[in-house]
């Protein structure tokens, strides 16, 4: 068990290293002088150029530049944005909390809703209705869901603030918007898994013990249906990262999405690099969690 965890953490580190290196190579490969790339649309003055050369060791051999970059990244030093005149760590640090809040709220909402939908809609008509609604949600672009929710709940009924990140009320609509498509996909997968598990011989055995259908579902079926759902955690992390950029734009929320958008449009390379590495880290964490969740759910995978 401990060895399995260590192995997964190790491969996670390799992915992180690869992401950091890829980002670095992209910086070098960018057309023109590396110093120009780092300045981006910022002020171009001789002192700043000298500062950049010193920070990125551009006057030293390529190997030293690279190793030094890795060493700084490993320590959490993500460089300095010369456009914003602030360390990248501070730029991201300010915006990390609102985005994390949104991502966690959306993931929790999506998973809980999916579980409820899959477990409750077992009848013939209920499942048909629910399944149709899920497919509609999955195939609707998130920004459209967001705009519809905004116009109904904010403009019409004034239940939630239109934009910004003040208090929990402002989190509700963005989290629902981001969480609904997640719930749609997960509910379909969970329902399919439940159907399959409840058809297995062990479900017959469980019923033959006198268990109620609900107990068979909750104690036996649900755990089996979680296995295929866990596989989707990797996909989920992608949706959360990509979706938050759009959702933050629609709801005018501060966050990493806004930062990324600004950094890309103003060619603020140090911030873009940091976002890439951060996204990779997020991806690694979620996927490692998924691998460990497998071990937790299915004892058959636990043999060393």
């Amino acid at each position: 068990m401990i060895r399995a965890i260590a192995r997964r953490a190790g491969s996670g580190l390799v992915v992180l290293w690869a992401a950091a290196t890829a980002a670095y190579l992209a910086l070098l490969a960018a057309p023109g002088d590396t110093v120009d790339s780092i300045i981006g649309d910022g002020a171009d003055r001789p002192q700043i150029r000298a500062q950049i050369i010193a920070e990125w060791n551009l006057d030293r051999p390529a190997v030293v530049q690279y190793l030094d970059y890795l060493w700084r990244a490993a320590q959490g030093d993500l460089g300095r944005s010369y456009l914003l005149q602030r360390p990248v760590r501070d730029v991201i640090g300010d915006q990390l909390a609102p985005t994390l809040k949104l991502a966690v709220a959306a993931a929790v909402f999506g998973v809980v809703l999916a579980l409820i939908l899959a477990v409750v809609t077992r009848g013939r008509w209920a499942r048909r209705a629910s399944s149709t609604a899920e497919l509609v949600l999955v195939s609707t672009p998130p920004f459209l869901i967001g705009i519809v929710l905004l116009s109904v709940f904010s403009f019409r009924f004034g239940m939630f603030p239109v934009s910004g990140d003040r208090g929990w009320a402002a989190l509700v609509l963005p989290a629902v918007t981001l969480g609904l498509p997640i719930a749609g996909v997960l509910a379909q997968v969970l329902r399919d898994g439940l159907d399959r598990a409840l058809d297995e011989p062990f479900a017959v055995t469980a019923r033959a013990r006198g268990l109620t259908e609900r107990s068979v579902l909750l104690r036996h079926g649900l755990r089996h249906s979680l296995l295929p759902a866990v596989t989707l955690l990797g996909w989920l992390s992608g949706v959360l990262i990509g979706g938050s950029v759009i959702i933050e734009q629609v709801f005018g929320r501060p966050g990493l999405g806004q930062v990324t958008l600004q950094a890309v449009s103003s060619s603020d390379m140090p911030v873009v690099l940091a976002v890439v590495v951060l996204a990779a880290a997020f991806f690694v964490v979620i996927n490692t969690a998924a691998d460990l969740a497998y071990l937790l759910i299915d004892p058959r995978l636990r043999r060393s």
Binding site: P201, F202, V204, T205, H220, I297
Partner: peptide, 11 residues
């Protein structure tokens, strides 16, 4: 039932 590998809940 026939095969306990599938007739007992494997999890």
């Amino acid at each position: 039932l026939q095969d306990a590998l599938v007739s007992l809940d494997p999890l």
